[in-house]
């Protein structure tokens, strides 16, 4: 555990993620504004004492909208990554262990999923399902399933060849038992390694969708939507979009660094190598 605190990526990434999470969590304490309150006389103000990040084109406080918007963006990112982690790991483990026809079919479906540009795919699902929080989980989560599926499948193939799996079968352990007790627990650490980067990817996907105008409808702010609000006057009044963009970029950076740090620490090869 001490070793991981020496990892710069982990510490910096973790720090960023922690700070942003705290801001978002304690949003009501950090602002006295209402994220939906329109105040047209004070629209598009630059940052100042009253509004530290200025106001948007309806006069809403940008700082307030960003920290509340983080709640939406992070929830969407966490929810969709959770969907992808669970589905991807289960299917990958099943595919890699059972092999045969099931694996052939799932792997082809996976190829098809991967052939779509992620964003386009999210858009299509989003349009088909309609926009709500739950549907965002799916429209962003489904395109990231392949990330988890591929790792889970490859790991399950190697775990499936280990003698302890053979031993469990020799004892009379059924397929489901082997998958639940041996395959998934041994596959999970490998898929968790990419969890953090996947969350970063989901934040980016949500932001892109929001910026394009798809996503959770107004007035609920999400970072992508806030950036979109400022889009029309981006050159004359860049504050709204710039601050939202900065938050998006910083958060993704945080999750990616955290992910890299975790990977260095968790990756069994690197770990055993370090032990020797």
């Amino acid at each position: 555990m001490e070793a991981i605190l020496k990892n710069k990526f982990f510490v910096i990434g973790g720090g960023i993620v922690l700070i942003i999470s705290l801001l978002v969590l304690f949003a009501p304490l950090l602002t006295s504004y209402d994220y939906g309150a329109v105040d047209l006389p004070n629209k598009q103000l630059p940052p100042g004492a009253e509004h530290i990040m200025g106001t948007d084109l309806y006069g809403r406080d940008v700082w307030c909208r960003i920290i509340y918007g983080g709640r939406v963006s992070l929830t969407v990112a966490l929810g969709s990554t959770a969907v992808a982690l669970v589905v991807g790991t289960m299917l990958g483990a099943l595919s890699g262990y059972v092999r045969g026809t099931l694996d052939f079919v799932l792997d082809r479906v996976n190829d098809v999923l991967m052939a779509f540009p992620m964003l386009l795919f999210s858009l299509v699902i989003g349009v088909v399902l309609g926009s709500s929080m739950k549907n965002m989980f799916l429209s962003i989560g489904i395109p990231i399933i392949p990330m988890f599926y591929r790792i889970a499948r490859a790991t399950a193939m190697s775990v499936g060849g280990r003698s302890y799996v053979l031993a469990a079968r020799a004892m009379g352990g059924g397929r489901m038992r082997v998958i639940l007790r041996h395959i998934i627990p041994n596959v999970l650490p490998h898929t968790l390694v990419i969890l953090s980067s996947a969350i970063g990817g989901a934040i980016l996907a949500e932001a892109s969708l929001g910026f394009l105008g798809f996503g959770i409808p107004q007035p609920t702010p999400s970072w992508g939507l806030i950036a979109n609000d400022g889009k029309t006057y981006m050159f004359s009044h860049p504050w709204t979009t710039a601050f939202a963009g900065a938050f998006i970029a910083l958060t993704i950076l945080g999750f990616n660094l955290l992910g890299d740090g975790l990977r260095d620490w968790l990756d069994p090869k690197i770990r055993t190598a370090a032990k020797r």
């Binding site: 280990r162 003698s163 302890y164 053979l166 031993a167 469990a168 020799a170 004892m171 009379g172 059924g174 007790r181 041996h182 627990p185 041994n186």
Partner: peptide, 23 residues
């Protein structure tokens, strides 16, 4: 029935480390 008969037939593999789930 195969499952039942497995109680009577067991195996010890070459590599004991590989035969034991590390978790």
């Amino acid at each position: 029935k195969m499952r039942r008969i497995r109680r009577d037939m067991q195996i010890v593999f070459q590599d004991p480390y590989d035969s034991l789930d590390p978790r």
